[in-house]
Design a protein around this nucleic acid. Structure first.
Lengths: 337, 337
DNA sequence: TTGAAAGCGCTAACAG
DNA sequence: CTGTTAGCGCTTTCAA
C-alpha cells in the first residue's frame, strides 16, 4: 500500500495524494474528497521511514532516567494528553540514570530516529551537550535549573519547595533536622541540578534559623536504597535527628523503612518528609508529608512548548511551577525528652 | 555526513562502507580497517530512516499498558541488559492500559516505525490482533496465558503463584479470605488474562479446601485506587474477611490504606498479601507478603527470544517462570474472636 | 490547481 | 573481494 497505489486508484498524481495526506496548501475540495476516499478505501498509511527521509516523523522523544520513578508517570500522562490530539506520538527511552555515557547514547538514539522534538527529563549531562542537541532538534528540558537561549525549561521551584518542608519541620519544633540528597559525580554542573537546589536551600534555611550546628546531610541517592542508607547514616548520629527531610519520596520510603528497622516510630521518634507527592505517599498507611509539584501540568506544558517549537518558535521559554506542601501524619512535633 | 562521504574519504565504494557498517559477509580485513578509520574520523552515523527503507531499524518496540507499574521497570531492566550488547535500542510506548482502541493505536505506532521486534506487555486486545501483528513483526507477548504458533510467550505461572498465597493464608488459619481482582470488559478473551487465572485459582483452592462459602471477590482493578476500593467493599461484608489477597502489589498497597482507614490493623485484624513482589513491598514499614516472579529474568528472556526471532526462528516458544512466595509481616494468623 | 521528475541515504542484486 | 546501479516511498521543486 503505497502512495502510488492510492494515486492510481484515485486516478491522480502521487503529488496530489501527498498534499492531501499532509493537509498541504493548494488542493481543490473535489481533489481532497476524491483522494481521501481512495485512502480510506485502501486503508493506506504513509510509510514512516520514507516520510522521515524528507519531512517530519510526527514523533516526540522522551528521555527518562528510568521508568521506576512514579513521578515520571505523571509527567508522561500530561505530555500524552497535550500532544495526542495533534497526531504526534511519544516514544520513551531510558537513559539509565546517572551514567553520562549511557545518557548520551540514549539521546543519540532519539536523534538518529529523527524525532521532531525531545523532552529530556532530569538530564545529568553538561549544558553544552543540551545546547548542541537543541540547535538541531526542538528541545524542552524538565527539572534542571539552568537557563538557555536555545531550549525551553520546565521546572518546579525547588527552592520554595525545600523551604516549605524545612520551615514546616522547624515550626513543629524540630531543631535536629537531617537531609538526604543525591550525590552525583558531575563536576561543574551541580548548580543546575534540582538535588543541589534542594540541599542548598535546606542548609540556607537551617542557617538562617540559627540551626547551622544541626545541619546533617547524607549524600546517597533519590531512590529507596539511597533513602534507606541515608537514614541509617543520619540515625547513627548522636544525638540523632528528630526529623528527616528526604529530597524525594522514593528516598523517604527507604527512610521510613530504616526508621522502622531501628525500632523507632514515625512520627513519634522521628518525623519524615519527602518531595514529589507521589500517588503512593497519600495512602493512609504511609501518609507521608511531601511537596506537591503537579507533574501532569509540567508534562502538559512541556508538550505544548515542544509543539510550539516544532511549529517554529525560536525564543526560549521558562515555565516554573510553584509547589505546595501537603502535610500528613509522618510529621509531628519532636519527642519531649 | 552520508555513506557517500565516507566512501569518498576512504577511496572506496559505498557498498564497501555499507558492508563494514553492517558487519556483513565478504569484506577483507584491510578494507574493514580502512573504512572503519574513515568512519571514526568523520564521526559518521548511519541515517536511520534511509536504513529503515531497505533493511533493519535495530529497534525493539516495547508496548506497556503504562509506566506506573513498578514491575514493568524490572522487565525493562532485563530486556535492556539482554539487547544492548547486540546494538539494539528499546523504545517504549504507553498503550494506555485498558482501552483497546488506544492500545491498537500504540501498536500501530510501533509497526509504522518499523521496529524489528515487539515486546507486548499484558495486551488486552484479541488474540487475532496479536497474531495479525506477529505475522509481519517478530513478537513476544508477556503476561498472557494463551498459546500461539506465531508469537512467543513469556509468563509466570499464575496458577502456582495464586495457589501459594491462598494456601499460605489457609495454613495460617484463615477461612474468610477475600480477593481483589481486575475487571476488564473484554468479552471472550478473559481466559487468557493473568487476572482471570489468579482469580479462578483463588476460587478453585477455596472450593477444594471446603471454603467455597467464604469466597468473596471484589472486581475493581490492579491499581492503588482499585485496591483501596476493593478492600472497602470486602471490609463492608459481615462478617468481614480476616485476610485479603490482592492480585497485584499496587492493589495491595491500596488495600493496606483502606484497612488502616477503617481503624483496623495489619496483620492483627486483617492479613494482606499481594502479587509481584515490587521492590517497595520489601521495605520494613510495609513488609508485604507477596509472590515473586522475577521480572528481570522475564524481560531478559523476552529480549533473547526477540533477537532469535529477528534472526530467523519461526517456531513458537513458551517460557514460564515458576513464582515463589515471600512471606513478610503483613500476614499472620487471624484474630481469635 | 495539478503533475512529472529528481533525489533523500541506504541496501541488495549483479557484474567484474 | 570490490564496485556499479537500481530502486525503497515519499516530498518537493518546477512546468504546464
Amino acid at each position: 500500500m503505497t502512495i502510488t497505489d492510492v494515486a492510481r486508484h484515485a486516478q491522480v498524481s502521487t503529488t496530489a495524494v501527498s498534499k492531501v495526506v499532509r493537509n498541504a496548501y493548494g488542493v481543490s475540495e473535489a481533489m481532497r474528497v476524491k483522494v481521501q476516499a481512495a485512502i480510506d478505501e485502501l486503508g493506506y498509511r504513509p510509510h514512516h521511514a520514507a516520510r522521515a527521509m524528507r519531512g517530519r516523523t510526527f514523533t516526540i522523544g522522551v528521555l527518562l532516567p528510568h521508568i521506576r520513578n512514579p513521578f515520571f508517570a505523571d509527567i508522561l500522562d500530561g505530555l500524552t494528553e497535550e500532544i495526542s490530539a495533534s497526531g504526534y506520538q511519544a516514544i520513551m527511552v531510558q537513559s539509565g540514570g546517572r551514567d553520562p555515557a549511557a545518557e548520551r547514547r540514549a539521546g543519540d538514539a532519539l536523534v538518529d530516529r529523527q524525532v521532531d522534538g525531545i523532552l529530556w527529563v532530569a538530564p545529568c549531562c553538561a549544558k553544552a551537550q543540551l545546547e548542541q542537541l537543541a540547535k538541531d532538534t526542538p528541545t524542552v528540558v524538565l527539572g534542571r535549573h539552568d537557563r538557555s537561549a536555545v531550549y525551553d525549561c520546565v521546572l518546579d521551584d525547588d527552592e520554595v519547595g525545600a523551604e516549605l518542608v524545612v520551615e514546616h519541620l522547624i515550626a513543629l519544633g524540630h531543631r535536629r533536622i537531617g537531609h538526604i540528597t543525591q550525590k552525583d559525580d558531575l563536576p561543574g554542573r551541580a548548580a543546575a541540578l534540582l538535588q543541589t537546589i534542594r540541599a542548598r536551600t535546606y542548609e540556607r534555611v537551617m542557617t538562617e534559623r540559627g540551626l547551622a550546628a544541626h545541619i546533617a546531610v547524607a549524600a546517597t541517592s533519590y531512590s529507596e536504597e539511597g533513602g534507606y542508607e541515608g537514614a541509617r547514616q543520619l540515625l547513627a548520629r548522636d544525638p540523632r535527628p528528630t526529623a528527616i527531610f528526604a529530597g524525594a519520596d522514593g528516598a523517604a520510603f527507604g527512610a521510613l523503612a530504616a526508621v522502622h528497622e531501628a525500632g523507632l516510630t514515625v512520627p513519634g521518634d522521628v518525623s519524615v518528609a519527602g518531595y514529589d507527592n507521589a500517588r503512593m505517599s497519600g495512602l493512609a498507611h504511609i501518609a507521608l508529608t511531601s511537596v506537591d509539584q503537579d507533574g501532569a501540568i509540567m508534562g502538559k506544558t512541556a508538550g505544548r512548548l515542544l509543539l510550539e517549537r516544532i511549529d517554529g518558535r525560536t525564543s526560549a521559554v521558562r515555565f516554573s511551577v510553584t509547589p505546595t506542601l501537603v502535610t500528613r501524619r509522618s510529621t509531628a512535633p519532636p519527642p519531649r525528652s
